[in-house]
Structure formats: structure tokens, C-alpha cells
Design a protein around this nucleic acid. Structure first.
Lengths: 124, 124
DNA sequence: ACGAGACATCGATGGCTGTCAACATAGAGA
DNA sequence: TCTCTATGTTGACAGCCATCGATGTCTCGT
């Protein structure tokens, strides 16, 4: 019922952007990128992304994740929903369990936008 | 007053981290990275970073920045303070004007941690 | 059909944060 | 010195958000 999911999630809008050090970012661009960064700008969600991405098979079910935090299950569920909502995590329900998978290309796009790709941290 | 200078800003702590897709992030790691992302997770600050980084000479004074937003000067000053506070912007006062410069190596480190664009995920 | 387990949703709450107006500070010039 | 301009600081307020307990939904065994 009225589950109007956005055809273009925040993740896709980032893919076409040039790095922020290259040219001034438009307001619309910033408005679409900021939610992605905001989703990652939380220690719990950062660790969740890392746990899922580095988990065996590239995916992890909620029961694998809740144990790593001193947080209630609803809280973990909330954070996963945020990450899934902005396109950083894929969701797959299999039986009783729900498996989450990191969208590494989304992370790569975001990284490319933040840091100029190919530019080393230490200049010669 | 009581301007306790941070010996190690949030930026430096990121430089040594392996990408989040490679291995599970520790809580301390996440706690040190999250503030950096949080600083960038605002449309205004994103555009500020982009404006400064892409500005002629790699630096921009506040008067160059305030015009780009429909925000009061104290608000811009506040955002610049946030970006400077976490080590993403360098500050240089010359006469009446204050020039900000983007720390591109900090951005590169952050990008490498998020997505390692074009970098092999498996070390030797 | 019934109970148990896995996960999501809801409503409430305390803390954080983006914004502004007002004021403070500091340098340049008259 | 006095004034103007550029920038930072303060205090206040409204909106957002991370977290929890309680509850709902779905699926699998028995």
C-alpha cells in the first residue's frame, strides 16, 4: 500500500558526480550526497557496514550483527533500515532470517566523490 | 579560553585504517571516523569544502563563501569552524581576512577508508 | 493449530545540531 | 583615536535523531 519507493535512490545520484575537489558542488548535488554521508556518519552504522561488507560471503543476517553491539535489537534494526533506505545495503529475506549485503559500488562512488581518485595522500 | 589544542585531530587517526570493506571496524576506529563523516554530512559543509577545494589557489576567504549561500555569516562561520575543528580545513588569517584551505590528503584518506577506488582489495 | 524465534514497527524521550540575532574582537585607514 | 569592515562568539530555539520498551508480523517446528 502506497509503498512508493524512489526509482532513483541516493546512491545512484552520486555516481555521476565529479569529485568535490574538482569543481564547486551544486546545492542539489550536495543535498543528494549529504544523506548518504549522514547514514555513514554514525559509529554504529559504520561498524554495521564494515561487519556486513567484511563478513563471510559478503552478507550477514541480523542475528550475526546484534551480538557485536550493546544495543537493543530494535536499534540495530533501525540502523539497518537507514543504511538500506539510502541504498548502501541490500536486503534479502530467506526464511526467518534477513540477510544484508553491502553495496560496494555505492561505497566506491561515494569515495570517488570525496577524494580525488588517483591522488595520493602524500604529494611527491 | 581553555583552547586545548588537539595533538592528534580526527583526520590523522583515519590515515592508518584499512578500508571498511576489508575487515570489521573496531569501535574506537568507528568512533574516530564518524565525526569526520558527520562534518561532511551536511549540504552546506559539503559545498563549503567543495568551494574551498576548487577555488583558485586552493584557498578561499570567508567573504568568497558567504555569498554562495542564503545563510547568515555566523552560520557560515560555524560550519567552517566545524570543518576546521576536525582537520578537514586549514585556517590562515592574513590581515583582516581569513583564508581556508582544504586538506586534500585528509579527504583522500577518508575516501580510501570508505571505498578504496581502484585499489585492489586483496594485499599480497 | 499452537508456540517459539527472528525481525520490524511504534511511541516516547533525552540529547544533539543547524540557524539566527546580538554582541565581541581585531585589523586597516583616516 | 575613532570608525569601518571582516570575522568569530554567545545564547537561544526549533527540529532532528539515537535509543529503548512494548508490540506486531512472519516463518518454522511440533
Amino acid at each position: 500500500m502506497s509503498k512508493s519507493l524512489p526509482v532513483l535512490s541516493a546512491v545512484e545520484t552520486v555516481a555521476c558526480c565529479s569529485p568535490l575537489t574538482h569543481e564547486p558542488m551544486s546545492q542539489e548535488q550536495a543535498d543528494s550526497v549529504a544523506p548518504l554521508l549522514k547514514a555513514l556518519a554514525d559509529p554504529v552504522r559504520l561498524r554495521l557496514m564494515s561487519l556486513v561488507a567484511s563478513h563471510e560471503g559478503g552478507e550477514a543476517c541480523v542475528c550475526d550483527l546484534t551480538g557485536a553491539f550493546n544495543l537493543s535489537q530494535p536499534t540495530i534494526s533501525h540502523h539497518l533500515k537507514v543504511l538500506h533506505g539510502c541504498g548502501l545495503l541490500d536486503r534479502d529475506k530467506r526464511g526467518v532470517w534477513v540477510y544484508y549485503r553491502a553495496r560496494t559500488e555505492a561505497l566506491a562512488n561515494l569515495a570517488a566523490l570525496i577524494g580525488t581518485p588517483g591522488a595520493p595522500a602524500v604529494p611527491a
